[in-house]
Amino acid sequence: MDTLIQQGINAISLGAIYSLFALGYAMVFSILGVLNLAHSAIFMLGAFFGLIAIDQWSLPLWLAFPIAMLGAGLVSVGLELVAFRPLRRRNAARISQLISSIGAAILIVNITQLIFRQIYNSTEAYLPRDLIPSDPIVIESLGLRVQPVRMLIVVIALVLMVLLQYLVNRVRIGQHMRAVAFNQRIAALFGINVSRIFIFTFFLAGVLGGAAGMFYGVVFLNVTPFIGEDVALIGLTAIVLGGMGSIPGAVLGGFLVAGLQIFSIVIGGSSFRNAVVFLLLFIILLIRPQGLLGQPESTRA
């Protein structure tokens, strides 16, 4: 029982990072209908900017966070301008946009690799160990040991998610985003500046991806130019599982994937955890092809 609760906590803190990362994928998809495979590179940049801010500029953590998020958001806007907008202008197939995002991802990762070499003379670096108090909170009665930072991450992640939900549903620019997601042409007719909405969406997606990357760096301390590759597939799975383009779906998907992975470890199948995740994904897709919280395809424009 004790282990089960402990594992539950593990799942929640991992799920928070996955969800935050998946949100960025989901937002871009809901608006453009395109997968932005460079989002994993943005995630990595979040961790990288955080590392630079803390390790090179000696900034405190609370200042490094917004820097990492802002930096990742700006690069994400750059992606829209360089890899997506020119293709949309040429009416290119969505699949071409997918490939251009791969090209952009390769570019970002390789440039970061060069910068890593310059600064650290290696392709990995560590955040300082004393960055966050690592003494775990011990709850003897339950036999639990919880890292405060992990709980903090869950809290911050949830706050960011609620803020996002508020923004999309209650604030004007969020309503414009939903209008553009529903139908670009109609939105343009209503006087919405569609390209500005695109930029704003990429910025938000980048900020969330950057936050996820920064969390990842803070919890695990190890940062390399390749950490994005580890979450790329997980993020994709999460949004498909939750329902493409659905914001609550991405959050649910992220927690579900983390929960499933950890559940497979608990039942003694750590070697099979990704197979378990994908089998469930497969079954869900067969029953509900639009994902758990997604709308059926016909209602989307």
Binding site: V82, A83, P86, L87, R90, A92, A93, S96, I99, S100, I102, G103, A104, A105, I106, L107, I108, V109, N110, I111, Q113, L114, R117
Partner: peptide, 22 residues
Amino acid sequence: KEFRGVFNGLVLLVVIVYLPGG
């Protein structure tokens, strides 16, 4: 040499942006 990967990504990006049809 070490700029190989950067160019690889750049070529892929530029080709697809200028020739979206391949």
